[in-house]
Nucleic acid binder design. Structure first.
Lengths: 149, 149
DNA sequence: CCATAAAGTATTGTCAACAATTAAATTTTG
DNA sequence: CAAAATTTAATTGTTGACAATACTTTATGG
């Protein structure tokens, strides 16, 4: 009478497990990110630019699923910190080009402890984490496909 | 020379897949949550209180991994919306008791479409989602254990 | 060539997340 | 019993997430 069998318990909600897990990783990363004076989405921008020194706000938004209302102020702070430069494209002034600075590139080595910390805290092997990643990426792709319909 | 083999690509970062997946689910839920005039963490508070009509700020914080800086204003908004009531414990005035109202309880039925929408958008069977949930909960538990050390 | 539509970005406003600090009440301890 | 330690919440301040709106530039149709 008190509870409804239709209603899932909190712990049975996949959405909550993912939400809680994502925030648990953020808490784990925080000391390392603080050390580098980075926030998590700033770290993701750098991960992207370490592979590909130049991008645009639009492209970063697509890759990270972040919109310009998030990215514009975030990238301005990163520019103020000397990690990236922002320049409007000469040929099409609608486009904002973002490229990494030497200081930004230099953080790559110092940041290798970050994915390492997840590996250690998880108590799992890299292959196990990779398997989880494949599964979550499949789910993510399904959700992204569904949202386009 | 351009890229460093040490450095994982963005898509190889489990942290990013989880973060992106969690936000994709939020986007999926938004129309349903808007309909109920709820935010996602408010929905989680209700999921908790639907099973267990009464709780405290401390207990909600533990279950949801949220601190009082998040919960206090969130619960005040829920009280203003008539979904919960907040009363200090008579015996120990440090404790803030939270209990669900009839209006809050009444949302339970209307909210059943929310987990349903994830099932549909995922294109998977409930058992597959349950398997993912078990895996993620294991990882979450490992991270929580590691953080206590 | 001009009017309109489309695309890209910036701005504004609300809620959330969370660290750090403060305050108040209770419990423990000497 | 009084002082210290602990527990619980609230407050303050910064950043992030994202919807809605506005603004600017480019493309297109007549």
């Amino acid at each position: 009478m008190e509870t409804n069998a239709d209603n899932l318990k909190l712990e049975d909600h996949l959405c909550f497990s993912l939400y809680a897990c994502s925030r648990a990783i953020l808490r784990l990363y925080r000391p390392y990110l603080d050390e580098l004076q980075l926030t998590y989405p700033q770290y993701l921008v750098l991960v992207t630019l370490w592979m590909k020194q130049k991008s645009t706000i639009k492209e970063l938004g697509e890759v990270l699923s972040l919109d310009t209302g998030t990215l514009t102020p975030l990238l301005k702070r990163m520019e103020a910190a000397g990690l990236v430069e922002r320049h409007r494209d000469k040929k099409d002034e609608r486009i904002m080009n973002i490229h990494i600075t030497n200081a930004g590139q230099a953080l790559q080595e110092k940041a290798s402890c970050i994915p390492q910390s997840l590996l250690e805290a998880s108590g799992m092997k890299q292959e196990e984490l990779n398997e989880i990643n494949v599964t979550i990426k499949q789910l993510l792709q399904q959700l992204n496909t569904a949202s386009k319909k």
